[in-house]
Amino acid sequence: MHLPFQALDPYLFTRAQALLDEEWLHKDADLAPVLPTVLARNVGQDWHKAGTFRHHLVGVARSLTQWQQPRDVRLLGLLHSVYGNAFVDLVKFDAASERGRLQALVGESAEHLVYLFCTQSRAQFVQRVLAGQIEPDGSVVLDKNGQRHVLTPYEVAAFIVVSMADTIEQWFSWQDDIFSCFPSVPQRPQAVHWAASLWPGPMRPSARMLSQIAALGQALQHPGLQGLLPVPPVFAHCTQPLAAADEAAATALYWSVIQQEHPLADLDVATAMLEQAVRLNPWVGEPQMVLAQLYLSAGRSADALQAADSALQAFSAWGNAWDKRVQWDAWVAWTRILRQSASEGGWPERLDKLNNVALRS
């Protein structure tokens, strides 16, 4: 068996563990002072994709924190849609009258990033970055209402990193349909495509956006952008691509196992499907986590440990879940159970005893 499993980086995992505490944001010296003002705008009551707006903002900030981004970029993540934008009508601060208030709260540099991120065309930005339309110095030229606007190299790097975190936190199959072909989204009539509109749909992981995130990350290797910000630890520190066809096939294989669309009497078919999913897309943890459990069920503890370590590495690298059916911390918790069982060489023989498993360290 040769699979592209990743070794678990203890330092990265330790950083991720600190973010498993629900109170991590309240303890963050940079973000905690801003939180009461944000929460006072009822972000915990607003719907947003796979959760609430609060869930989304905190999730984006969590990835950016795990990626060791500087204060202004992490604040951009926490506040990235508060002035509203072309994608959402959630206006929590009025850009015409409240910029001064937000500047006083977070500082001019952070507020400037938030304002630009909300008011410039993010679809156009992503299109130009993916098309390689980055100037030699790292800047990107955008057009808005006939006006030319130049994003500085630092702004470009910040917008790329936050776009990566923003996408991984929220995107799942429902958006694959309603925002099909993003960033060039065709306008389709809702009534005709009513089945695609039903929220939340099957909650299948996205079959197309990881490859786009990988391409955005690779843009950080542009000579004009290198060294401006810490490179996210995903896709081998943004050095490796993910082919769109490989992503789509890997998602289909994974979801077929989750939906049990294969022979169920023995483990061989499901195991082979997940192994192929990992070969095609080794950058997310969920397929490797499920594979680790199959290995445990087959008595393959050494293989299970490798798969669980690799899954934990992926979860730690992202700071968010790819499969949105449960939250990131739950995926991490179950993977740690699998890793513990693989290390100790034990796994319940009785089905009901799975209810008893617990983490001991």
Rank of each mutant, 00 (worst) to 15 (best):
V126E: 11
Q170L: 05
Q127Y: 03
D137Y: 10
V129L: 12
R148Y: 02
E155M: 12
E108V: 09
M164S: 03
S121C: 02
L113H: 02
V162P: 06
T152P: 07
S163R: 13
F159Q: 08
D137N: 12
Y154F: 15
T119G: 06
D176N: 13
D166P: 02
R122I: 09
H149Y: 13
V129G: 08
D143L: 12
M164F: 10
V156I: 10
S139Q: 00
Q147M: 10
L142E: 10
Y115Q: 05
V150S: 14
T167D: 05
S121P: 03
Q175H: 15
F117Y: 15
E111Y: 05
S173E: 13
S109Y: 01
Q170Y: 04
G132Q: 00
M164D: 06
V114K: 01
C118F: 01
E169F: 00
Q147L: 10
L151F: 04
Y115C: 05
P136L: 08
F159K: 09
M164A: 13
Q133P: 02
E135R: 12
T152S: 15
H149S: 14
N145L: 13
H112G: 03
F159N: 09
A165F: 07
E169P: 03
V114C: 02
F172S: 00
Q127T: 12
V150C: 15
E155D: 10
V140H: 07
A157R: 07
E135S: 12
D137L: 05
D166Y: 05
V114N: 01
R122Q: 09
R122L: 14
P153N: 07
S163V: 14
V141R: 14
Q170G: 09
Y154A: 02
I168N: 00
L113N: 03
I160R: 10
G132A: 00
K144T: 09
H149N: 12
A158F: 07
G138T: 00
G132P: 00
G138K: 03
C181M: 15
Q127L: 11
K144N: 08
C181R: 15
T152K: 13
A110V: 09
E155Q: 15
H149C: 10
A157D: 09
I160H: 05
I134C: 04
V114E: 02
L151A: 04
D166C: 04
Q133Y: 01
F179Y: 14
P136V: 08
V140S: 06
Y115N: 07
L151I: 04
F125V: 06
A158W: 09
V162W: 10
R128P: 05
E169S: 01
T119M: 13
A158C: 08
D166S: 08
P153H: 11
M164E: 11
F125C: 05
P153K: 10
E135L: 09
V140F: 07
